[in-house]
Structure formats: structure tokens, C-alpha cells
Design a protein around this nucleic acid. Structure first.
Lengths: 223, 223
DNA sequence: AGTTCAACATACTACTCGGTATGTTGTCAA
DNA sequence: TTGACAACATACCGAGTAGTATGTTGAACT
């Protein structure tokens, strides 16, 4: 916001994170480092100095761009969520049955969990931090926005599976519980997937297929 | 271990955590408080003073029983794992098909996640801490034992689902991936379940049933 | 009655970390 | 050429925290 009126234009001015462009190049590098650090050690155990060190810089650089550690964390959170929306959005008004729509959305979502894993783990931890109320009153407001953002994302999936159930293509009981089970299942690569050297896109697609198949069956899709 | 040769016998000498008896009463109270605190704020964000405060005590009490914060955490971890073994063990040599055995094990396991939730969240975080290598060399050894302990527990389930697949009662591809999906699914109440006031055991059983049904279908069990 | 010791509480230290205040440098406009 | 300013680096402070060293007390044992 308030993207500098006439910032000095240099090479490496913009970057993308999971399909979402981040305006400033230096900020994007900080975001990447922060996401990696938060993923590796967790939010509380990660110090600003850790993030700066992984950049070959010092605290000054980070505090020049972000007013606080919490704001840096929130920006990583938001970037991860925006990447999810950007990946899902083209599928919103697609033709076909609800189950078919769900399957394509689920595959894109799961792939996103693998490809932008550091950011998505921050999103996950952010949700937990919010639920635990470990935020200052001011950041509480920002976090509330991010949580609403995230709930809207979940609502998209929920609508689709409810529509699929009404069409007789899915079978489940409580939609709230089922939504939780579905997301935990689709998100699970966050916890057990580790990139292997020399791994092809085929390998990733194999994993995605297994995750989505498991979840689809869990939702009562006939096979 | 080395349960005091002739400790002063007082009232409230022993307690149970999820069916497992903890020798010393005061230690058990510390364990409960630590588990609750670690669940509420996470390991890194929880201070020894926090745990002591929730007990109405001071650090002295905790450091009298535990040499370090990591050892306290490890003890919570081990207690949680022991509760899991104790719950599963009676089902090991039960009659019936592999699927039937799995379903009973899964129900007991999921119920355990709900009933002893603070301890199980510590187990979860402990696994992550170990995988991140955030331990001192000495505690690394203790943690390695605990991880082996945990892997053995997972192996029990893995054997059962492989047997069920060979019997034609389950359908899945890679057992490693499937085991991860299964546990993430069964453990998911750790993240989204919150005890409601005036909640009956029936309500919990309803949740357990939904979780196990979802997972069973995910594993390819016919319904 | 006196000794011992477990089970704590109190007081203190060394260190880390979030945040700030200030210095430095390269670049661009005029 | 020269100010102006963005983009950092450096130096520093205060708060919190893991761990230690030491004091205190009540109960058991002799």
C-alpha cells in the first residue's frame, strides 16, 4: 500500500511468490527469508537477527521495511493466502459438476501446499497464533482481517462440497467437522513432505494425486 | 525412574494421565501444568515461570524435579506416548479381520487425541522440534529414543493397514504416504476440537465416529 | 530435642532478543 | 557540484528468560 510515489527504479524490482507478484524486490527477498526461517524454527524461536543473517544483512534492513516482527509475519501470512486465492480463482466459474470442480480445486490447493510450503506453514502457524490470542491489540485487528480472508477461502471449498453432497456425489455428516478433516488432509504435505534432490514434477503430481484421492474417498466420493 | 528409595509418603501420592499412572503426585501436577502451557503457547513461547505461575508456585519447584526445560518437555512427551501405548495395547491380540482391528485401534487413538489433548499436542510439537533439530546434543539422544518410541507406535498401525490391503479390504498406493495421511487425519482433532461446556461422552463419540469414518473411506474401506 | 533432608521459595546472573536512535553510503534530481 | 533521501549498517537499551546458588521449613528418624 502507498507504493512509493517515485521509488528509485533498479534492476530486480519485482518478484513472484506462488504466482503473486510482490512489488519491491528487496521486500520480496526479506519475505522469502522470513518464510523459510519461520518454517524452520517457528515464529517464537525465530529472531529478527536470524532472518537478517540468512540474508547476509542486519536488523536495520528488516526494520527499515517492517515496523515490527509481527508485521513481517503478517505480511508472509497474507502473501501465502494471496497465492492460494490466485491459484484457485481461475477455477471458480468452471463448467461441470461440483465434484469435478472440487477435484480440480483440491489438486491446485494441494500442489500449492507443496510448492509454496514455507509460506503455507506460516499461514498454518498464524491461524494457531490467532486462536491462542498471542497478539497485541493492534495486530489483533490485522490478524482478524487475515483470518476472515482465510475463512472466506475455506467457505469456497465448503460450498462446493455441500453442493456435491446435494448432487448425491458426496456423503458426509457434519459439514463443519468435514471441512476441517478435508483441509487437514489436503494440507498434510506441509508436515511430511520434504523436497528430494532431483525430484521431477511428475513425482509431485503423484503425491498430489494420492492426497486428493485419499481426501475424495474420505468425503464419500464413489470410485 | 529410580523412584525414590523411601520417599516421604503423603496424601496425593500418585495420579493418572490418560490411564498411565505417574509415580509422584507433585511431578504429575507439574506435568499437567506444563502440558497445558505448552499447548496454549507453544514450547518456545512458554517460560518456566509461566508453568510455575499456573501452579501457584515458583521456578524452584520445577527445577527441583527437572534439570532443564527440555527435560520437562521430554517427560510430557513420553507420558503422552505411554498413554497412547497403554490405550492401544489391549487391542493388539484381538480376534477378527485386519480392518476390524484397525477400526477399533483408530477409534481408541482418536479418542485419546481428544481426551489427553494437551499431552498429544506436545507430542506433535516434539516431533516437529526433533525434525527441525532444535535440541542440544545430550537431549538429542533422549529425543531420538522418544522418536523411535513414536515410530514403533506408527509401525503398529502400518502393519495393520498393510494386512488389510492384502486381505482386499483396503485400497491405497504408497504405504508411507498413506500412513502420513491416516495419522494426520486421525490426529486432526488436536487442531480443531475444543471442549464445550456441558459436553457429553456421546458428543465425543460422534466426533470420533466421523473422524474414523472419514479416514476409513480414505483408506479405501468399502462401506 | 536434635539432626537430616526433601521440597520448595528467594535472589541473582548471564544472555538473548525486540525495538530504537543514529551513523553511513550510493543514487538521483536540480 | 550539491543537497536530499532511500536503503541500509552500527550501537545501544530495556525487558524477559534459562539456569544457579542459596536460604527456609516442615516432617521423619534417632
Amino acid at each position: 500500500m502507498a507504493a512509493g510515489s517515485h521509488l528509485a527504479v533498479r534492476e530486480e524490482e519485482a518478484r513472484t511468490v506462488g504466482g503473486v507478484t510482490v512489488a519491491d524486490g528487496s521486500r520480496a527477498a526479506i519475505l522469502d527469508a522470513a518464510a523459510a526461517c519461520f518454517m524452520a524454527k517457528g515464529y517464537a524461536a525465530s529472531s529478527i537477527d536470524d532472518v537478517a543473517r540468512s540474508l547476509g544483512s542486519t536488523k536495520g534492513r528488516i526494520y527499515h521495511h517492517y515496523p515490527s516482527k509481527g508485521d513481517l509475519f503478517a505480511d508472509v501470512f497474507r502473501t501465502g493466502m494471496e497465492a492460494n486465492y490466485a491459484a484457485i480463482e481461475p477455477l471458480r466459474d468452471i463448467a461441470g459438476s461440483a465434484v469435478a470442480r472440487w477435484r480440480r480445486m483440491a489438486m491446485v490447493h494441494t500442489r500449492q501446499m507443496i510448492v509454496t510450503r514455507p509460506y503455507q506453514r506460516v499461514v498454518w502457524e498464524g491461524v494457531e497464533l490467532y486462536l491462542r490470542g498471542a497478539t497485541t491489540p493492534e495486530q489483533r485487528e490485522e490478524f482478524a482481517r487475515l483470518m476472515k480472508y482465510r475463512n472466506d477461502y475455506g467457505a469456497i471449498f465448503r460450498q462446493v462440497i455441500i453442493a456435491a453432497r446435494e448432487a448425491g456425489d458426496m456423503r458426509f455428516d457434519d459439514p463443519r467437522v468435514t471441512e476441517q478433516l478435508m483441509f487437514v488432509s489436503l494440507n498434510s504435505p506441509l508436515f511430511w513432505y520434504t523436497p528430494r534432490p532431483g525430484e521431477s514434477e511428475r513425482d509431485i503430481e503423484m503425491i498430489v494425486a494420492q492426497v486428493v484421492d485419499f481426501t475424495a474417498r474420505g468425503l464419500g466420493v464413489r470410485t
